[in-house]
């Protein structure tokens, strides 16, 4: 397919995934807020930290109140990764490739965009209490993936879409783990307390992982949470799962057999996948969670760059040899 179309479909998926993740974080946090009014400010700041854009936030907002954080993450036009901007960029990308995707995908994304725009006009206050807005945006990400799976042939375009989604998701899962882990571990006093349990459950909820975790491990322990969110093979938001599916799509695009590589993104992603696949929660926690995640994110960024150079940034051939 056209390099430009491939790039647009890749970013379309990334932006939808990004919007969904933000909506989920906010949604889960709002649920927690209901039961822990005392510590409200401290509860909202981590959400901004998850984005990696705390500096951006602190320059423009005085305090990490719910109003400010939700405004920033949802409707702030000046913040490039706010939900409204992500949805708009997803739609703009879709608009440039309407001929490559299905009408159903386009129409759904367009409706989501109209919905978010309408909500933005009503203002942040309209989504703070008793609103289903964030639930809807969360659902939208899943619906869009479903529509994509069921209306687009699982051809190259579909694989670029999944590649984008999986790379974005792996990045978001790792950030969430990083921030939550950072907050959770130092509070030794809370270990084993109901509050501690609530925080760990919130982390699992933030990844829509709570139920599946319970089925697999039962009791909530930091060790198993790491096992589940980083190293699980089957859970769709686990980092290893995302990297594995991204690698599958990459190989489907190029036709290179799995287990070998023919270009840089395949090499980098393959290395990263085997590092994860042969790691363990002990090793990760022993070496430091934050260091591990920092390293992972650096590697994901290089995968993204390699994907760009291998597929999207095809340079012109000089016309000297022309007839």
């Amino acid at each position: 397919m056209l390099s430009r179309s491939a790039e647009s479909i890749y970013w379309m998926s990334r932006y939808v995934e990004r919007a969904e993740n933000i909506a989920r974080f906010i949604n889960v946090n709002m649920g927690m807020f209901l039961e822990n009014q005392a510590d409200s400010a401290g509860q909202w700041e981590p959400l901004v930290q998850v984005t990696g854009d705390y500096e951006h936030f602190s320059q423009r907002y005085e305090a990490s109140t719910m109003e400010h954080v939700v405004e920033f993450l949802t409707f702030d036009r000046a913040y490039p990764n706010s939900i409204i901007n992500c949805v708009e960029l997803a739609r703009e990308n879709a608009r440039t490739i309407r001929e490559s995707i299905s009408s159903e995908m386009w129409e759904y994304l367009n409706r989501l965009y109209l919905k978010v725009m309408d909500q933005a006009r009503e203002g942040t206050a309209s989504v703070l209490t008793g609103s289903t807005f964030f639930t809807e945006v969360r659902l939208a990400g899943n619906l869009f993936t479903g529509i994509t799976d069921n209306t687009l042939s699982h051809n190259e375009a579909w694989h670029f879409s999944r590649l984008g989604r999986m790379i974005e998701r792996a990045d978001k899962s790792s950030r969430m783990l990083d921030v939550k882990y950072f907050i959770l571990l130092p509070s030794v006093d809370d270990v084993g307390s109901p509050y501690d349990e609530l925080q760990w459950s919130a982390l699992l909820h933030s990844a829509s992982a709570y139920e599946m975790y319970r089925k697999k491990y039962g009791r909530i322990t930091p060790h198993n949470v790491v096992n589940f969110l980083v190293l699980d093979h089957d859970f769709p938001r686990a980092m290893l799962y995302c990297v594995t599916k991204a690698e599958e799509s990459l190989h489907d695009i190029t036709g290179t057999p799995l287990g070998s590589y023919a270009n840089e993104p395949e090499q980098r992603l393959g290395q990263l996948r085997s590092e994860l696949a042969f790691s363990s929660a002990e090793t990760i926690m022993h070496g430091g969670m934050h260091e591990f995640i920092d390293d992972f994110q650096g590697k994901m960024n290089r995968v993204d760059e390699a994907v760009y150079h291998a597929f999207f940034g095809l340079r012109a051939i000089p016309r000297s040899g022309g007839a």
């Binding site: 397919m1 056209l2 390099s3 179309s5 309407r98 001929e99 670029f160 016309r319 040899g321 022309g322």
Partner: peptide, 26 residues
């Protein structure tokens, strides 16, 4: 383009060499 099932290209997707027009694909 969608209804015909063909590619929609912009000028920057196309390039001329060896006496033919080519499009940049993945």
């Amino acid at each position: 383009a969608q209804q015909m099932g063909v590619e929609l290209v912009e000028g920057r997707d196309l390039t001329v060499f060896d006496g033919h027009v080519h499009m940049r694909t993945t």
